[in-house]
Computed example of a mutant assay.
Amino acid sequence: MAVLLVLALPMVLASGSLATELLIFALASMACNLLLGYTGLMSFGQGIFYGLGSYASGLLVLHLKAPLLLTLAGAMAIGAFAAAGVGWFAIRQRGIYFVMLTLAFSQMFYFLAYSLPDITGGDNGLLDIVRPNPTMMGATVFDIARPWHYYGFVAAIFVVVFVLMQRLSESRFGRTLLAIRDNEARAAAVGYDVRAFKLAAFVVSGAVTGLAGGLHALLSGIAPLSSIEYHVSETILLMTIIGGSGKLFASVIGAAVYVLAADWLSSIWPRWMLLLGLLLIAVALYMPQGIWGVLDRLARALRRGGEGPGARIDTHKEQA
């Protein structure tokens, strides 16, 4: 499905930058889903890792002239490192106290970025970030200066990350996270180190979110202070909830709906956030499992309808 998505977007969207932004936020939403949908942790700290990834990319390009892959690796590393630190403290609490801790860390990192203008650019952020081309032995492998060329590069990364996270979610590690989400006390009773698994999920989520932040900084050419605001965490959480937690591709759907709806509504009315709020209210009231849940119920209904009465009669005969 990930491959079909990246192939379909150039056919339905006129803007390469919009298509690229969609995939970047899909990465961030998948990372959030690993915490919310698989581990049961509602984190308001995703904006920390996203913003630090943006800053890391900007600093590496502006001051060290780092190559593209090293720049993105740095964004992932700083995201994972920050997630390890935040997660080490946050996972010691549950419920509302966990949420409050992640929100407090989000505010702390925001004011830290604001207070260090020599490093982060302060209120102005980091400007004039040049997008380096991927090179091999000093030769340019692929020119990503144009929007659709950069989309192709981001699409390749998106597919790789999606496949890796899908395998991770289906592995023993992923099934253990689901067990912790469903019954943490029972998972601990059978011998699983619950805190270690939660921390590992935090680190993976932070690395992928940092990657998304780094890719976005290279897309826009800036690493603004707003990239580390708690509003970014809210946006990523909303994408995850709209799509539906517990399924990775649902996060992609949620990101696509949010990004495309925001782009469309902003062209209709300057106060488009009000319209988006009404959409979110509708999702909360009538789609508690997100858009993925609605699509799943429709698919099941179609399968039952496709069986026909004859299939149901044969089933009853077999049972008799």
Rank of each mutant, 00 (worst) to 15 (best):
D118E: 12
I119D: 03
T120N: 05
G121D: 05
G121Q: 02
G121I: 05
D123A: 14
D123G: 04
D123C: 04
N124W: 05
L127I: 10
L127V: 13
I129M: 07
V130S: 11
V130H: 13
V130L: 11
V130Y: 13
R131N: 14
P132R: 08
N133W: 05
N133D: 15
P134L: 13
P134E: 10
P134K: 12
T135Y: 09
T135W: 10
T135Q: 15
M136T: 09
M137C: 06
M137V: 10
G138H: 07
A139W: 02
T140N: 13
T140W: 03
V141M: 14
V141P: 05
V141K: 03
F142H: 04
F142S: 02
F142Q: 03
D143A: 11
D143H: 11
D143P: 11
D143M: 09
I144K: 06
A145W: 06
A145E: 15
A145S: 15
A145K: 12
A145F: 09
W148T: 08
W148C: 06
W148F: 14
Y150H: 02
Y151C: 02
G152M: 14
F153C: 01
F153P: 00
V154A: 08
A155S: 12
A155V: 08
A155L: 10
A155I: 07
A156S: 11
I157K: 07
I157M: 15
F158H: 10
F158G: 04
V159S: 04
V160R: 14
V160S: 08
F162R: 07
V163Q: 11
V163F: 14
L164S: 01
L164H: 01
M165E: 02
Q166S: 12
R167A: 00
R167S: 00
R167V: 00
L168P: 05
E170Y: 15
E170H: 15
E170D: 12
E170M: 10
S171G: 00
S171N: 02
F173K: 00
F173L: 02
F173Q: 00
R175G: 01
R175L: 13
T176D: 03
T176L: 14
L177I: 08
L177E: 10
L177C: 15
L177Q: 14
L177A: 09
L178C: 02
A179M: 06
A179H: 01
I180K: 09
I180W: 00
R181A: 09
D182Q: 11
D182K: 05
D182H: 07
N183A: 10
E184L: 09
E184Y: 01
A185I: 04
A185P: 01
A185S: 07
A185C: 00
R186N: 06
A187Q: 05
A187P: 05
A188P: 09
A188V: 07
A189Q: 11
A189H: 13
A189C: 10
A189Y: 14
V190C: 04
V190N: 03
G191S: 06
D193F: 00
D193C: 06
R195W: 00
A196F: 03
F197H: 14
F197T: 11
F197Y: 12
F197R: 15
K198M: 12
L199V: 09
L199M: 13
L199E: 10
A201G: 15
F202T: 13
V203W: 04
V203P: 13
V204M: 12
S205N: 11
S205G: 15
G206H: 04
G206L: 04
A207S: 09
V208E: 01
T209H: 08
G210I: 02
G210W: 00
